[in-house]
Simulated assay, not measured.
Amino acid sequence: MRRGSKNDLNCMERVIFFEANRSSRAGMIAVGNVVMNRVASDDFPNTVCGVVSQKGQFAPGVMTRPMNSKALPDVREAAIAVLRGERQRGVEKARFFHTYGYRFPYNNMHYVLTAGGNTFYEKRKSHLVTQPYPPAPID
């Protein structure tokens, strides 16, 4: 796995921008952590761009829409930090997230963190879920 290449940085910026650009820094780092957890998993592509460009996984147009915002310097800084190994405490092994406040009828969502308007979770067998509801936001 190549970390920190120009393509990785661009893809990480794009996912953080479209999933968390109006977010706190913790929320931006957490989104990047989910990407890196997926890269490390055998269940997903083994590159940042491979993960981010997977159809239906992230915001529509994540790889094609223009990024225009005053948030871009913060997004870039967060993307660089994630690629250099920074992790948001609490994300741990989570490979999924959704907008905080949404509810789903699934019984396999073990919630670990809420930050930046998103709530992060691991998929587990239902009998191993000990946190079935999103925790309070940290920011």
Rank of each mutant, 00 (worst) to 15 (best):
M1R: 09
R2T: 11
R3Q: 15
G4T: 03
S5P: 10
K6C: 11
D8I: 07
D8A: 08
L9G: 05
N10F: 12
C11Q: 08
E13V: 11
E13W: 10
E13D: 11
F18K: 04
A20P: 00
A20D: 01
R25I: 07
A26K: 11
A26V: 10
A26C: 11
G27A: 06
V35M: 06
V35K: 03
R38A: 13
A40L: 15
S41L: 07
D42F: 15
D42H: 14
D43C: 12
N46F: 13
T47D: 07
T47F: 06
V48C: 10
V48I: 13
V48S: 10
G50N: 05
G50V: 06
V52W: 08
Q54K: 15
Q54E: 13
K55S: 11
K55D: 09
F58N: 08
P60M: 12
V62K: 02
V62F: 05
R65L: 14
R65A: 14
M67F: 12
S69T: 02
K70T: 15
L72I: 00
L72D: 02
E77A: 09
A79Q: 07
A79W: 05
A81M: 05
V82Y: 01
V82M: 02
V82F: 00
R84K: 11
G85K: 00
E86R: 15
R87T: 06
Q88Y: 02
R89F: 05
G90D: 01
G90E: 01
V91W: 01
E92Y: 08
E92H: 08
A94P: 00
A94T: 05
F96W: 00
Y100W: 11
Y102M: 08
F104E: 13
F104H: 15
F104Q: 15
P105E: 06
Y106R: 05
N108Y: 04
V112G: 00
L113S: 01
L113M: 01
A115M: 00
N118F: 04
N118H: 03
N118P: 03
T119G: 02
F120A: 08
Y121Q: 04
K123A: 14
R124K: 04
K125D: 15
L128P: 07
T130E: 15
P134Q: 09
A136L: 06
A136G: 04
A136P: 01
P137Y: 11
